Simulated assay, not measured.
Amino acid sequence: MKDLIIVGAGGFARETAAAAAPAGWNVLGFVDDDPALHGTVRAGLPILGPVDSVLKRDAAVVVCVGNPRNFTARRRIVERLGLPEDRYATVVHPTAVVGAGSTVGTGSVLLAGTVLTADVTVGAHVAVMPQAVLTHDDRVSDYVTIASGVRLGGSAVLKTGAYVGSGALIREGVTVGDWALVGMGSVVLHDVPPGEIWAGNPARLLRKAEELAQ
């Protein structure tokens, strides 16, 4: 078993810890920049110190931060740490299915019940929440977040940093642009331009989200 430290101590971080242990990782604990958390325990694991403390430790790292209000945080922390690619863990829950021809990049997390059917490409530092289904020839770029219950039709494309909310349906062949956000439960029938927030059935533009990617 290889040692693992999880960056962040929120819900996604704790879910990742629960997935990592049965996947063969020895989870040492979490790191977080909130000093009030240091020395406390979350989900049975200690908060070891600030984020930058991973630079002094000999363990694999996975960055598990971000939410719909701040979905660029994962990229910012990865860039801030500047760790080599081989320091990052890829965590795949034992119940996730990674089909033939599919690949998952470094630093990415597939939680319980995730399905990649065939020839799906998932980039680096991608968060895939429980019960998401990615079908044939989907392409998911770095720093994407796919919330629970999302369904991607075949050959869908999620560009860098896109966020797809819980239960959203993305039609086959549709592209969601860089740092765009799709609201939960949305039905996306057409391409979503970069830096926009879309929601509804059918999904439509609500407002620009470009400032989130700064």
Rank of each mutant, 00 (worst) to 15 (best):
T95Q: 08
R74M: 02
A96I: 08
L83W: 07
V109K: 02
G99H: 05
V78W: 05
L83G: 03
G101R: 05
R69P: 00
R75A: 08
T103K: 11
R75L: 10
V91E: 06
R87H: 05
A96T: 11
A89K: 04
R69M: 09
S108F: 08
G99L: 06
R80K: 15
A96G: 09
R76A: 13
D86F: 12
F71P: 00
G66W: 06
V92W: 09
V78D: 05
T95M: 05
R74K: 15
N70A: 14
A112K: 10
R87A: 08
H93P: 07
E79C: 03
A100Q: 13
I77A: 01
E79L: 13
A112Y: 01
Y88P: 04
R87I: 02
R87M: 11
L81V: 11
R74C: 00
G99F: 01
T72C: 07
P84T: 05
H93D: 15
R87G: 05
S102F: 06
G82Y: 05
E85R: 15
R74Y: 01
G107M: 08
S102A: 04
E79A: 12
V92K: 09
Y88W: 10
A89Y: 10
L111V: 05
S102M: 02
G105Y: 06
H93Q: 10
V78A: 03
N70R: 12
R80D: 02
R74W: 01
I77H: 01
L83H: 08
S108K: 09
R75N: 01
P94E: 14
P94F: 13
T72E: 04
A100T: 13
T90D: 13
T103C: 01
L111N: 06
Y88S: 13
A112E: 14
R80L: 07
L111A: 12
V109I: 15
L81R: 10
A89L: 12
I77R: 01
A89N: 10
V104T: 07
G107I: 02
S102P: 00
R80S: 14
